[in-house]
Amino acid sequence: MTNEPAMPAAQQEDAVSVTRHRLMWPSVAAGIWALWYAAYRGYYAAGGTAFLPGTIRPGAEGRFQLINLLGAVIIAAAAVVPIATLPLWSRRWPRRMLLAVYWIAAVGCCMHALVDIAQRVLSLTGAVHIDYPPLWSTIDRRSADLQAIFFNEPWFLVQGLAFGTLCWIGLGPGRARQWWAATAVAAVVALFLLGMLTVAGILDKVIVF
């Protein structure tokens, strides 16, 4: 009887150690996946123009570079988060914070990817017309749609799934994992439907860039 209180604590330490070990490589993978996309955005921020589906309007180059610079900085910061926060999974309140932040990131990335892929497919068929920001002088709509479908949006989808995977591993088996996954999927579905209503013009449209 005297040893019983110590056993759960020891088992809990072992579980935390195993969880952190399992989170290591998925966290590194999530960071690398974000980092290469940050580099891609950084290339355009530095003035690169390769693979653009159009030409930037004269005088708007600075704005285009600034948009990509901000994107590169934000994504690069996001690349560091999964690795830098690994020790926090063993602490109760920081762990809850991570689960909430990653929930938002996973839902946001997956929803963004699914809505934009659907919109781009509809654009290819001529069912919808996408309005582009005025910084574009010319735009090849087909190339822009294909680039979004096969390059940009898959990045968002995989990044969202990566954040979701970290939480799936971090939560371990049980109701908490099921609840996290169920609410995330429900939110993605709800936001996807809301996004498609904007694509269809039923709700106010948003510019997809």
Rank of each mutant, 00 (worst) to 15 (best):
Trp93Tyr: 11
Arg96Met: 14
Arg96Cys: 03
Tyr102Leu: 12
Tyr102Trp: 15
Ile104Cys: 10
Ala106Gln: 09
Cys109Arg: 11
Cys109Phe: 15
Leu114Glu: 02
Val115Asn: 02
Ile117Ser: 11
Ile117Pro: 08
Arg120Asp: 13
Ser123Asp: 04
Thr125Pro: 00
Gly126Asn: 02
Ala127Leu: 07
Ala127Arg: 01
Asp131Cys: 01
Asp131His: 11
Tyr132Thr: 12
Tyr132Ile: 04
Trp136Thr: 11
Ser137Trp: 14
Asp140Arg: 12
Arg141Trp: 09
Arg142Met: 10
Arg142Ile: 11
Ser143Pro: 00
Ser143Tyr: 03
Gln147Val: 08
Ala148Cys: 12
Phe151Asn: 05
Glu153Ala: 09
Phe156Thr: 02
Leu157Phe: 15
Gln159Arg: 08
Gly164Arg: 10
Gly164Met: 10
Thr165Ala: 12
Trp168Gly: 06
Ile169Asn: 03
Ile169Trp: 06
Gly170Trp: 03
Leu171Pro: 01
Gly172Ser: 06
Gly172Thr: 08
Gly174Met: 09
Gly174Pro: 02
Arg175Gly: 00
Trp180Phe: 14
Ala181Val: 15
Ala181Trp: 04
Ala181Cys: 08
Ala182Pro: 00
Val185Arg: 03
Val185Asp: 00
Ala187Asp: 02
Ala187Phe: 08
Val189Cys: 05
Leu191His: 00
Leu197Gln: 08
Ala200Tyr: 06
Leu203Gln: 07
Ile207His: 09
